[in-house]
């Protein structure tokens, strides 16, 4: 992965977040949550800053980031699509829905489309099992999704322009 140069402003932001937790090593997970919610992801360069601020090794930070599935080192698409692969969704056909998304977007789970619009991930149970199978695009939940609806969901977001 090519090295990213972090903006001065970003580094300041990370430092502020670390300071708000008193730069305590034990608060690492809370720090990571906050930083990811601001930046969207946690690239190596960000982890280096955090390690320095909390006075711990980068390896330890990296160990924690990669351990938990909630943290990601890759930037997400503009519209992150998550397909619930909990058991309830699975027995109601989530796998077919997932493969239809893969086919339509031509990406695999964990990847982002070339135009940066969509990224695809699977998640474990959002707890809306009554609506199985469930698909989330950003914060919006789509329930009882069938393969033919997949294209419609994608089309709906293709037309959205975030700048507006």
């Amino acid at each position: 992965m090519p090295k990213i140069k972090l903006a001065e402003k970003t580094i300041e932001l990370i430092k502020e977040i670390c300071a708000s937790f008193d730069n305590k090593e034990g608060e690492l997970i809370n720090v990571l949550h906050q930083v990811q919610s601001k930046l969207g992801y946690l690239p190596a360069e960000v982890q280096e800053v955090i390690a320095r601020e909390l006075n711990m090794s980068v390896a330890k930070v990296y160990g924690v980031v990669t351990f938990y599935s909630f943290f990601t080192m890759k930037p997400q698409g503009e519209f992150p699509i998550s397909i619930c692969m909990g058991t309830a969704c699975y027995v109601r056909g989530a796998e077919q829905v997932l493969s239809e998304f893969k086919r339509q977007l031509k990406i695999e789970v964990g990847q982002t489309t070339a135009d940066g619009k969509f990224s695809l991930s699977s998640l474990r149970c959002v707890g809306a099992c009554g609506l199985a199978p469930v698909v989330m695009v950003g914060e919006k939940v789509f329930g009882r999704v069938t393969s033919p609806q997949v294209l419609k969901i994608i089309e709906e977001y293709k037309e959205v322009n975030v700048e507006e």
Partner: peptide, 24 residues
């Protein structure tokens, strides 16, 4: 204290390590 998506953290000792900011 917030979890970050690790099933094993439902296990008591793993949960406690996670609360301490470590790998669960």
């Amino acid at each position: 204290k917030y979890g970050a998506g690790a099933f094993v953290c439902g296990e008591e000792t793993a949960l406690i390590h996670s609360m301490e900011g470590l790998r669960g």
